[in-house]
Design a protein around this nucleic acid. Structure first.
Lengths: 337, 337
DNA sequence: AATTTAATTGGGAGCGTTCCCAAATTTAAC
DNA sequence: GTTAAATTTGGGAACGCTCCCAATTAAATT
């Protein structure tokens, strides 16, 4: 990195402290077989010259880079429309850094995905990676397994016959809790607006909704899918307003906001005329007018957990038990429902 | 990366195609001195086995990793409140990947910064890095220079006696344009709300505002700083509403939104009673009620440009001329002013 | 056809580590 | 005090690549 070639190596430190390269290596790697005296002497020299062993050389011989990748197979616009990815990346990065791992980013639009994805996945610079979206094709998953890659999924994958490590949240439970709350509030004609029907997050939230409705003996009302976007929520809400539902439970906050805007445009008020509930507790949810009743998931923790599983369990311990962690969600009651 | 040690190396490819390691290396690196016939033969073998040269080994000998770092020295919450960083990171990553470079992320809160920052900066795995915030301490900049690091700043640094590479936008011009527009609209008592007074983006926007006001012979009104946040904008607006200004030009959209909410709360309407203008053209700006008149900057392009400068000019060409690029902004007139 | 010149090819060394094994030293045991 | 065992230390080899230089081969010149 410096242009001035003043970078010391193990051999230099060895000479400066009157021992051999191997001994310095042992000191750096905390190997037990080195006497207290020499250890201290070497440590002093290391500190004095602020020596840092060359990570590249180390990676070459250990076959471990201490770097993981984040794969975001998503069209560009969505990555910054929703804070989900930003928070996820953040959660992953902070935890990884804490465990002394670096993080490299692989963004890929739907057009060029194969290229970037394959480069990232086959990068020997990477010890493993986190796939930041579960809607990954089954063939792709199968290939990863065939090639024995180390990776963790964020979100339950649609197929589950493969022993896949993943982190997910209690989507079903969240859907159930919210629906139960709405029912208990006295609403009967409660509609559910799916996000993207291929994503398990939407599927599971809907399953929770359906369970609660069935338990209460109420007929489920499923609207067209809103694709997890504000625009989608707006359009779907407009479409179904004639059906005079009493409450709409949207599979995401962004859709809930879109729906709310359609309702307000109609001159109706929330929650008096129609109640709106979301999912995620995105940062906008609390500040929206009216503040959104929603189901909170902690995306930062999801990211951190994914990093932890990948690094601690898969890379360092190489345990072969499959780790599937489901993080809790909680009902956040505000004013919109 | 694979557990199965089926990874081929140069020597394997050489054997499989009946040439030497060196020749394969030449083919991979597009060296001219290799005959058409052998080149094709080797290429075929490479394609057949889907061979990818080991980046770590390559990095060790070339002393270049083809990876750059992004340093985000920012408190965690801000990184996802504003889409600025998400977009910037995105712009950098896409361009870097396009130039066949990887990107690693270094987030650092104000508490642990020295640690993470120093690790990132001294990482021999990194060919250079982009500092995603100009409010970097002068001592730190001086140190970077002393150690001959390769880096690019996003945003003009507060001190400019060092030959520092940076990407910035026409903040002064943006401030000027907006103020000129407001004046031309007939407003006289136009206030400016600074973001964070240490950041050159705020300073420059204010300078533009002051220039336009001076030219029109109007007295400048500077409010307390809103710290670039919605909350800040809200609080500052509340504080100054008694002064009956006709328009508030905020140094960011988030502050403008906060200010707008304070105004709406007061039962006043925008822009009839008081006009509001922002800066950035964040994605919320167009969707806010009322849609925000603002100054557009293209953060994605800023990121891409920073990556380009770092990689093409500093790393690959190692030109020693200082590159300082100022990207254009444009006035976006909507309904809030 | 012989010789010079140019193009192509192969092997050695080295990048800075870690790991293994043997040598040297210290400590323990009889 | 001698031998055995345990601890500490040093040097060689390897990781997979690039680069340099010498050797080989092909093309050009007389």
């Amino acid at each position: 990195m410096d242009s001035e070639n003043n970078h010391l190596n193990l051999e230099d430190i060895a000479r400066l402290s009157g021992v051999s390269r191997s001994t310095v290596s042992r000191v750096i790697n905390d190997h037990p077989n080195v006497s207290q005296r020499t250890r201290e002497r070497v440590m002093q020299v290391i500190k004095k010259y602020n020596f840092q062993p060359n990570a590249v050389a180390r990676a070459l011989v250990t076959q471990r880079s201490r770097v993981i990748g984040i794969l975001v197979p998503h069209i560009i616009t969505e990555v910054f429309t929703e804070p989900f990815f930003a928070m996820l990346i953040q959660g992953i990065t902070l935890k990884a850094n804490q465990l002394d791992y670096g993080v490299t980013l692989g963004l890929t639009s739907h057009t060029d995905n194969t290229n970037t994805i394959h480069r990232l996945i086959n990068d020997p610079l990477l010890d493993g990676f986190i796939v930041a979206e579960a809607s990954i094709s089954p063939e792709f998953l199968a290939q990863l397994h065939r090639e024995n890659k180390r990776y963790v999924l964020v979100g339950r994958p649609p197929i589950s016959d493969l022993p896949i490590h993943y982190v997910d949240v209690e989507n079903e439970q969240g859907g159930y809790l919210m629906t139960q709350y709405l029912i208990q509030k006295g609403y009967c004609r409660i509609a559910f607006m799916p996000g993207r029907i291929t994503l398990t997050s939407s599927i599971d939230r809907q399953a929770g909704y359906e369970r609660a409705m069935a338990e209460a003996g109420l007929p489920p009302i499923i609207t067209p899918a809103g694709n997890f976007t504000k625009e989608g929520g707006y359009l779907v809400a407009k479409q179904i307003l004639s059906q005079k539902v009493e409450a709409i439970f949207c599979a995401s906050d962004m859709m809930a906001i879109g729906a709310a805007e359609a309702i307000k445009e109609q001159g109706l008020s929330i929650p008096e005329d129609i109640a709106i509930a979301g999912f995620d507790d995105a940062s906008i949810a609390a500040n929206f007018q009216p503040p959104l009743t929603t189901v909170r998931q902690d995306v930062l923790t999801s990211g951190a957990t994914a990093a932890e599983i990948l690094i601690e369990h898969i890379i360092e311990n190489s345990s072969d038990t499959v780790i599937q962690k489901i993080l809790p969600v909680s009902l956040i009651v505000r004013e919109s429902a």
